[in-house]
Amino acid sequence: MAKKVVATLKKEGGKSFAKVIRAVKSPKTGAYTFKEEMVPMDAVQSTLGK
């Protein structure tokens, strides 16, 4: 199934996406975890601003 998704994202007429990886600190333990999201290129700045 992953091949089908990758092929769809690489179409010429489709939107271009970016993978955003953020480090999130756990309030309980203080350890950092990483959260990954696939967002459209025009929404990257608004996603990072959260």
Rank of each mutant, 00 (worst) to 15 (best):
M1T: 14
M1Q: 03
A2M: 09
A2Q: 09
A2E: 11
K3M: 04
K3L: 12
K4T: 13
V6H: 00
A7L: 07
A7C: 06
L9Q: 08
K10Q: 11
K11D: 09
E12N: 11
G13F: 07
G13E: 08
G14S: 14
K15S: 03
K15Q: 06
S16N: 05
S16Q: 11
S16M: 10
S16A: 15
A18R: 12
I21D: 12
I21K: 10
A23K: 09
A23W: 01
A23N: 08
A23D: 10
V24P: 00
K25Q: 02
S26N: 15
S26I: 06
P27L: 10
P27V: 15
A31H: 07
A31L: 06
Y32F: 07
Y32S: 04
Y32T: 00
F34E: 07
F34D: 00
F34I: 03
F34K: 10
K35M: 09
E37S: 13
M38S: 13
M38V: 15
V39I: 01
V39N: 00
P40H: 04
M41C: 12
M41Q: 06
M41Y: 02
D42L: 01
A43F: 01
A43M: 03
S46H: 04
S46M: 06
T47P: 00
T47M: 00
L48T: 07
L48P: 08
L48M: 12
L48R: 04
G49C: 06
K50R: 14
K50F: 07
K50C: 09
